[in-house]
Design a protein around this nucleic acid. Structure first.
Lengths: 111, 111
DNA sequence: AGAGTGCCTAACCGCTCGGTTAATTAACTA
DNA sequence: TAGTTAATTAACCGAGCGGTTAGGCACTCT
């Protein structure tokens, strides 16, 4: 797998379980057990998902007695948003209409 | 791999080669050969990347003689942006300060 | 000290990914 | 018709993913 930061973040987000974990963490800190509750999945599987999220910088982890609380760390999502925004003109309807207009004008001037 | 639409898109974006291909297509239609030019990679490798992008709905493909031109189809990126925006409050500095303030107030009222 | 809880590591499994080379299809060109 | 170019498919490979079970460590509770 690619190891550059943005690729790590996108790869981490390419799994519904991990996106659900992030959504849960948006409501506040949680333990591994709390995070695993909604899923029909073993503990180690959740631990692996958390490791992927941590490597992507999307969560940080603490220690409190036998618990290892997870905390959302959303900064990398700003990069995701910024990257996608570069393409806004290609999905925004008004831009599409503008593009079509410019294309028409160009074709007319080419005649 | 997960096969839900958003996961397919994130997975497609989790590779620098594919992101570079999308950036190139933002400048306009291109053939497979044109797309493969910047990369030290065989043709079939590019074909596979294009297949991943097509399955994610990020490109569409045409036919012109022996060429199979690729066209950017950025609509799925709107979903990516929208998903990330749900977390804006967690990376935006002003929101962070607001959160800290609210936390302080809460702690004081708890005393 | 002993039992129970929370979480992790280790080892394993089937599958997919990202790449290769070789062969093939499809279209243009001389 | 033969040759060239564009792109694909097929078969293969090493590595990593996403999951499992088994076992172990750290901490709390009695």
């Amino acid at each position: 797998m690619a190891t550059d930061p943005l690729s790590l973040v996108f790869a981490a987000l390419a799994d519904p379980t991990r996106r659900a974990i992030l959504a849960r963490l948006a409501e506040g800190e949680a333990t591994v057990k709390e995070l695993s509750a909604p899923f029909a999945m073993s503990g180690p599987a959740i631990t692996k998902h958390l490791h992927v999220l941590e490597r992507a910088g999307l969560i940080t982890r603490g220690r409190e007695a036998q618990w290892r609380p997870c905390l959302l760390s959303a900064a990398p999502l700003r990069e995701v948003s910024a990257w996608a925004e570069n393409f806004r003109q290609f999905w925004d309807a008004s831009y599409t209409r503008l593009d079509a207009l410019l294309e028409e004008m160009k074709e007319q001037s080419d005649d």
